[in-house]
């Protein structure tokens, strides 16, 4: 799998974007600024209806902002004409809660589609599809149809399809919310690996704190169309300030045992082999912060950023 070169500077920058759906009383997204660093895995967490998906969809303009600027890499997406926008979208992968594989196409055809749209040569498409399916471990299913796959397999195909055009950015809307815990872990591992190995910037929407803990470098907490707080999970720790963030961080899908589990133990069960064993050094002492453990899944990020 060819690597995409890690970019420098903000990979995604939203400036004052707003979205108000016709007929609804309030805006789904109030004027919002958000800057995602290149190489970052950034979470957006909040309750259902908070506007997370809308914000994510504003990034690749599946949703047109009413106002504001959307920049991804060097492109100002919100100013591009249709043809250029479609080309730009090919540099932004997207995966979904319901996977959204194209039902009428086989696994291989799904992965090939973005490349065919881009006009790549049949030979290079074939090679790239094989490479991507191999990466997600589904070479054997190339000829299968989406209806014949499990949820986890569908999401892997969706990831392969998103990766095929070698995007610099991957948008993920609740990618594990339809999956069981074990499959969730395997998908999170793939996302962490994509980020670490290929330097892909990941913007991930979730309502599960456990996903944020296991994967994200930073998280934006969203409530009623606004980002109410941003928390950096790398730099030791800043305690959550807003009530919502405190509640999210203190509450738990994570049991106290899991929350305080040393990374060395977690590494033995679910971590990529590259995770260093001493990543729990930053676990702070206060109660709210105990809920956050720098897990092996985001440990590789430390190498990228601090090594």
């Amino acid at each position: 799998m060819p690597t995409s070169t890690a970019k420098t500077g903000a990979a995604i920058r939203l400036t004052g974007v707003t979205k108000h759906f016709a007929g609804s009383a309030t805006a789904a997204v109030h004027p919002t600024d958000l800057a995602i660093e290149a190489g970052e895995i950034h979470g957006i967490i909040g309750f259902s209806g908070a506007g997370k998906s809308t914000l994510l969809r504003l990034v690749n303009l599946l949703e047109r902002p009413d106002a504001g600027l959307v920049e991804v890499g060097d492109d100002e997406l919100s100013a591009l004409p249709p043809l250029a926008l479609r080309a730009a979208r090919r540099r932004i992968g997207m995966i979904f809660q319901q996977f959204n594989l194209l039902h009428n196409l086989s696994v291989a055809e799904n992965v090939a589609f973005p490349l065919r749209i881009a006009g790549d040569s049949p030979a290079s498409i074939k090679a790239r599809v094989a490479e991507c399916l191999d990466y997600v471990g589904l070479s054997a299913k190339a000829a299968a149809y989406p209806g014949q796959l499990s949820g986890g397999q569908k999401q892997r195909v969706a990831i392969a399809r998103a990766l095929a055009p070698n995007p610099g950015v991957l948008l993920a809307d609740e990618p594990t919310s339809a999956l069981d815990p074990r499959t969730t872990q395997s998908i999170l591992d793939v996302l962490a690996d994509i980020n670490q190995r290929f330097g892909v910037t990941v913007l991930l929407v979730t309502h599960e704190m456990s996903v944020v803990r296991r994967l994200c470098h930073r998280v934006s907490v969203m409530d009623e169309g606004r980002i109410v707080e941003q928390i950096d999970l790398r730099t030791g720790f800043t305690a959550p300030r807003s009530e919502l963030a405190r509640w999210l961080f203190a509450s738990g899908e994570a049991s106290p045992a899991e929350a305080t589990q040393p990374a060395t133990v977690a590494a033995a069960t679910s971590a990529p082999a590259t995770a260093p064993a001493n990543t729990s050094a930053a676990v702070p002492a206060n109660a709210a912060a105990r809920a956050i453990v720098v897990t092996p899944a985001n440990a590789p990020f430390r190498e990228v950023y601090h090594a």
């Binding site: 599946l62 479609r86 992968g93 319901q98 194209l102 881009a118 948008l171």
Partner: peptide, 22 residues
């Protein structure tokens, strides 16, 4: 499903391509 349109758009298809191909 709406998701089919979204997937089509997200991989860079135009409206016509999405309509015809998926």
């Amino acid at each position: 499903p709406r998701g089919q349109w979204e997937a089509a758009y997200s991989i860079g298809m135009s409206w016509t391509q999405a309509m015809r191909r998926t």
